[in-house]
Lab assay of single mutants.
Amino acid sequence: EPLWIRPDAPSRCTWQLGRPASESPHHHTAPAKSPKILPDILKKIGDTPMVRINKIGKKFGLKCELLAKCEFFNAGGSVKDRISLRMIEDAERDGTLKPGDTIIEPTSGNTGIGLALAAAVRGYRCIIVMPEKMSSEKVDVLRALGAEIVRTPTNARFDSPESHVGVAWRLKNEIPNSHILDQYRNASNPLAHYDTTADEILQQCDGKLDMLVASVGTGGTITGIARKLKEKCPGCRIIGVDPEGSILAEPEELNQTEQTTYEVEGIGYDFIPTVLDRTVVDKWFKSNDEEAFTFARMLIAQEGLLCGGSAGSTVAVAVKAAQELQEGQRCVVILPDSVRNYMTKFLSDRWMLQKGFLKEEDLTEKKPWWWHLRVQELGLSAPLTVLPTITCGHTIEILREKGFDQAPVVDEAGVILGMVTLGNMLSSLLAGKVQPSDQVGKVIYKQFKQIRLTDTLGRLSHILEMDHFALVVHEQIQYHSTGKSSQRQMVFGVVTAIDLLNFVAAQERDQK
């Protein structure tokens, strides 16, 4: 057995438009009618409502009807409940999964919650491996369901041993009777949507819809739904939504950006999952974080739909894509998950301010006199920076000697690579993860907040409520011999709460 199987392995699926269902090699399930009293909570997966979006479509000038398939009504709160249950049931049916076995899954959280929910009911041990950027709410729900959680670096490539995929496979090879159901490759993922989600949409719309818009992560949702719609409703256009920084969209030119990270969760990847059939997507749109969270908040405030950030991405694209539809036509959007997962993220004004998705003037509360002053007023001194090749031991000596707790790590040209902190280095040394002679590049981390000289002290204040420091950066445009230009970030300084307090105190003292 291989040590790991690539999540982007070539698909062996034989589905073709027009091929009889009787030739399918898979076990198919028909939607079942729910009894009045459910035998367990797993029976509350599927049969989610279709809700008309009344205000947002009109606000953006849509002539067509805009409908939302509300997947956050599933038992675990997301569309991923469907595939989690289906993968477990299919693994039980073919004898792969037996009582007492362990389920391991690399996930952005929602599939993990679905699997942990099913594992709690069915009696399996469950280990979820997820990147650090995923919300604390997801972690809390997983723990409450009895799952064990392993976190991995957000910026690790999918084929790196440190990625959530790599760590999951390492655990599988170490733990007896453990299984990775593997949402990236498992046919049960798109089949769950082909058999149930798509049929529900067709039934709820009486077979009449002209466009379907869905955000894409593993691709199982859009693949399964689109294949069924292509068979039953061939005139329906399928629109895929991919965040900026991901590479799922086609044509490839759409993916060209210097951005590699994004805040919206559960969609987009740096590889093409095996289950994603991009041939059934008629057109791709890219979405960005700001519009995703703005539209998610709009869905909550104006439509009462308590959905997550990827739902915002989907609707932001839908109001663009559906401009081509006329009166009497219908566009369906998939709202994948609930706001429950993001209470401390985009639902929080403070978080939105820190990330730059909300401006101070958007909030009406009274601010102190210094709130709208610029960061450049602080008069920061030149920063202490270190090269990635310097040793951890030497870096600790320098920081202690100069009285700093942290320093930016830059390359020879001064471009920011990340940050090192005294606390992080000492804990890594004590844990045996690094040696004093190791290069400081081994303990770089990139989960820090950046701020510009033109940003306000109010925004800085919000950042420092949650973080010990902020890195002050400025952009530099560099022209190359080819005539092309590129933008790079340079370090201007490091600012802490002490710097802000000293500035405010000094100004008030001078005024007296």
Rank of each mutant, 00 (worst) to 15 (best):
F503C: 03
L457M: 15
Q302G: 04
S485C: 14
V241K: 01
I444V: 14
A316F: 12
V473W: 07
G414Q: 11
P243L: 00
L353E: 13
L335N: 06
A470M: 05
V409R: 00
A318M: 02
G312K: 00
T389E: 11
F293A: 00
L471I: 13
T385N: 12
S437T: 05
K442A: 14
A311N: 03
V473N: 14
A296W: 00
A321R: 09
P243N: 06
K283W: 09
A431Q: 09
M298R: 12
I463N: 05
E508A: 10
T314H: 09
I272M: 10
F404Q: 05
A506E: 10
V440T: 05
G309Q: 00
M298S: 03
G458T: 08
H480I: 11
L254C: 03
M419C: 15
I396C: 11
V410L: 14
Q439L: 09
Q406V: 02
D467H: 11
G423N: 10
L384E: 12
F285S: 10
I416D: 05
F271L: 04
M490Y: 13
A316N: 11
I463H: 07
Q507R: 15
R400D: 10
T294S: 14
G414E: 15
Y262G: 03
V315S: 07
T364H: 11
T260Y: 12
G304M: 00
R374P: 10
P251N: 03
A318S: 14
H462Y: 15
H474C: 11
Q302R: 12
R330K: 13
S481A: 15
E412N: 08
L471N: 13
E465N: 12
A413W: 08
L500K: 01
A497R: 13
D438T: 12
K355D: 02
N502T: 14
T364Y: 15
S381Q: 13
G414H: 06
D349N: 14
K446N: 15
E475Q: 13
S437M: 13
M343I: 09
K367G: 15
L426T: 10
V472S: 11
I334L: 08
L417N: 11
S287P: 05
L384S: 14
L429Q: 10
I451M: 13
S485A: 15
L363C: 13
V415P: 04
R297G: 02
G268L: 00
H462Q: 14
G308Y: 00
W284C: 00
G304K: 01
P388Y: 10
Q302K: 14
F357S: 02
S461C: 14
T261C: 09
L373V: 15
G379T: 12
G245C: 08
S338Q: 08
I239T: 08
T496K: 08
K366W: 09
D337P: 01
G403N: 05
K442Y: 13
V434Q: 10
K512Q: 13
L384C: 09
G356W: 04
Q450V: 08
G304A: 02
S310P: 00
D349F: 02
D467G: 13
C331W: 02
T344R: 07
F404H: 07
G393S: 15
T391P: 14
V472D: 04
I334N: 04
P383I: 10
I451P: 15
I463V: 15
L426C: 15
L325S: 02
Y479F: 14
A407V: 15
L353Y: 14
Q439H: 14
H468L: 15
T257S: 14
S246I: 00
L363A: 06
K402C: 09
V339T: 09
V319P: 04
L429N: 13
E258K: 15
K484M: 13
D277R: 03
E265Q: 05
I238P: 05
F357W: 07
T454I: 09
E258H: 13
A311R: 03
Q256E: 15
D405P: 11
S486F: 13
I334R: 07
M298H: 11
H468W: 04
V375E: 05
G483K: 13
Q256F: 11
I334Y: 00
T344Y: 03
G308K: 00
G441F: 15
H468Y: 08
V434L: 14
V315I: 11
F346K: 05
P368G: 10
G356S: 07
G268H: 02
G308F: 00
V333M: 14
V339S: 06
T454V: 15
I267A: 05
Q354D: 11
I416P: 06
Q354Y: 06
Q439T: 13
N502H: 15
T421H: 15
G304F: 00
V319Q: 08
I498R: 03
Y479G: 12
V420M: 13
Q256M: 09
V375Y: 07
N424Q: 13
Q511M: 13
L500I: 13
L276E: 01
K320P: 08
I267E: 06
S287A: 12
G441E: 11
S486Q: 13
T454G: 08
A322Q: 02
A497P: 02
L299D: 03
E508T: 03
G312V: 00
V241H: 00
D337H: 00
W284S: 00
I477G: 04
Q406F: 02
V420N: 01
T274N: 03
F357E: 02
N424A: 13
D467V: 09
V410E: 13
M425E: 05
A321G: 14
C392Q: 09
R400L: 11
S461L: 12
T261M: 12
E253K: 10
L299Y: 03
W369P: 08
F271H: 03
G379R: 12
S461A: 05
K433V: 12
E360G: 15
G309Y: 00
L501Y: 15
A316P: 13
A497L: 03
K355R: 14
Q447E: 15
S437D: 04
E290T: 10
T389A: 03
L384T: 09
D242G: 02
W284Q: 00
D242M: 01
E290G: 14
R509V: 14
I398P: 07
G458R: 08
E465P: 07
H462V: 15
V281K: 02
A382H: 13
H462D: 11
P368F: 08
Q476G: 10
Q259H: 13
L248E: 00
M466A: 12
E265P: 02
V504C: 08
A292L: 02
Q476P: 15
K366Y: 12
S381G: 13
D510W: 15
A470F: 04
P436D: 15
A318T: 14
V275L: 04
T454W: 14
G493D: 15
A506M: 10
G414D: 13
P436K: 13
K367M: 14
W371I: 09
D467F: 14
G403D: 15
Q487R: 14
L248I: 07
D467P: 09
E244D: 11
L500W: 08
I247M: 09
V281Y: 06
K359V: 10
K512M: 12
S310R: 01
V386N: 02
Q323H: 14
V280C: 09
S428P: 14
V491E: 09
V386P: 07
H394C: 04
Q450I: 15
Q323Y: 12
Q487Y: 11
T279A: 13
V472C: 09
D337T: 01
E508M: 04
Y269T: 05
K286S: 00
Q476E: 13
L380Y: 11
K512G: 11
W370V: 09
T395V: 12
T391K: 05
Q476M: 11
T294F: 15
D455I: 15
E253G: 10
L373W: 06
D499H: 04
E465A: 12
V409Q: 09
L387R: 14
E327M: 04
M490V: 13
I334C: 06
L453A: 09
Y445C: 09
F469W: 12
E377F: 09
P368I: 07
L430N: 14
M490H: 12
T261A: 03
R452K: 04
H372R: 03
E327F: 09
L399I: 10
L276G: 02
D405F: 11
K446L: 13
L464H: 03
M352A: 03
F503I: 03
A505F: 15
L399N: 05
T454D: 05
E250P: 10
L276T: 02
K283P: 07
Q476N: 13
T456Q: 04
P243T: 01
D337K: 01
L347R: 01
K442W: 13
T385F: 08
E290C: 11
L417S: 15
N502I: 11
T257L: 10
Q478H: 15
N341D: 02
K355W: 07
V495R: 08
I451T: 06
G240I: 00
D289T: 01
L429A: 04
R297L: 06
M425K: 13
A311S: 12
D438F: 15
L380N: 05
L417K: 03
T274C: 02
Q302A: 04
F469N: 12
M425A: 06
V375D: 07
Y445G: 04
A407T: 14
L399K: 06
L335F: 10
P251I: 04
L363N: 07
L471C: 11
W351A: 02
P408G: 10
I398K: 12
A301L: 14
H462T: 12
V473S: 13
G418S: 13
